[in-house]
Design a protein around this nucleic acid. Structure first.
Lengths: 194, 194
DNA sequence: GTCTATAGCTAGATAGAC
DNA sequence: GTCTATCTAGCTATAGAC
């Protein structure tokens, strides 16, 4: 694990993530990746051990980023609605600086081999923490007493799909987007009488 | 195109959709599909012409179902908020009777060959119609004057992700789910003072 | 650190017996 | 309509020259 190699290796992983987003892990060949990197497929193996390792690094680092981000949010004394706003910010921030990787996290996790179980554990824990915030919010009468699973998956689906349309916006203002998204997800789109 | 073949062919397509949902189009082999069907790969070709044809039939029929469904909704004289509720129903209904196919529609459309352009056209038109309903809703002061793209993609992302968690619910009541989902998407989760 | 060459395997699809 | 056998092409990964 020489430090000198990390720069080139990171470049390969970043390029791979871009291609994985376009066609999915299984449809991208090492030759595709090599061509995009301007080299031959065999040369890739001086920097990475396998195609599987690339997928693992993309997905696990992102999954851990979400886990630590949510743990940080949970430490605060904010209201549950405020915690939800922080979760929206977390997703917008991570997605905006790694749009490509988010595609693999969402669509190619099932192709993980040794790390599959670990990933599933992280994801399951994340959903449990998220669900818990909604439950506490209902108990404290900050959140309506609707079906918890419907609220959880409605919000989470939107946040998980962010990678699909964030790149379409030019000059992205993450602070503004987070604010607008929170508004829509929390308060809805229905116009009330002022 | 003998009618007698259609039953077996439909069975193959349905099984393929299930496998495509689990691993994605590219990772599913004709041998996998044959095994699941209890036959040999070569035998599949008595019913279908190619793997690509299977994907095409799964995706295009669903895309057309959404297109005609939205056209039907557009014909009515309902308010724009009511039209949105109908769109939610449309997605819940189509997804609940073809959960597997929805995975391909969402994640494997880029592997379409001859029909790719047609699919992209249908999807683009669908989004335009959807956006138009929101715009009209804002104009008629039924919907808040927030960022249209944020509202559009927030709602559409949730509806497009329905296939991921609808099967987790046992004894699904589509009418009830549509109602709950509309409530959350339109009115938000924030508790207001009664 | 990149290359050529290639091993070893599996993919989609076809031919033809039954 | 299903089978066995097989073709051609493409895959990941390695060996070894430079």
């Amino acid at each position: 694990m020489k430090l000198k190699n990390e720069t080139r290796k990171d470049e390969i992983i970043k390029t791979a993530a871009k291609l994985f987003k376009e066609k999915g892990y299984s449809a991208v060949t090492m030759r595709d990746l090599a061509t995009e990197m301007g080299m031959k497929a065999a040369s890739l193996y001086n920097h990475i051990n396998s195609k599987q390792q690339i997928l693992k690094e993309i997905i696990i680092s992102l999954a851990e980023e979400f886990t630590t981000g949510l743990q940080e949010i949970q430490k605060s004394n904010k209201s549950n609605i405020e915690k939800l706003r922080d979760i929206v910010k977390l997703h917008v921030n991570i997605t905006s600086h790694n749009t490509y990787g988010m595609a693999s996290l969402n669509n190619d996790w099932m192709h993980l081999e040794e790390k599959l179980e670990y990933y599933l554990q992280l994801r399951s824990n994340y959903e449990d923490e998220f669900r818990n915030i909604i439950q506490q919010g209902i108990k404290k009468e900050e959140i309506i007493n609707e079906n918890i699973e419907v609220m959880l998956f409605s919000i989470l689906s939107t946040l998980r799909s962010l990678y699909l349309w964030i790149p379409k916006k030019e000059d992205l203002n993450t602070e503004e987007l987070s604010q607008q998204l929170s508004e829509v997800l929390i308060n809805g789109i229905n116009k009330k009488i002022d």
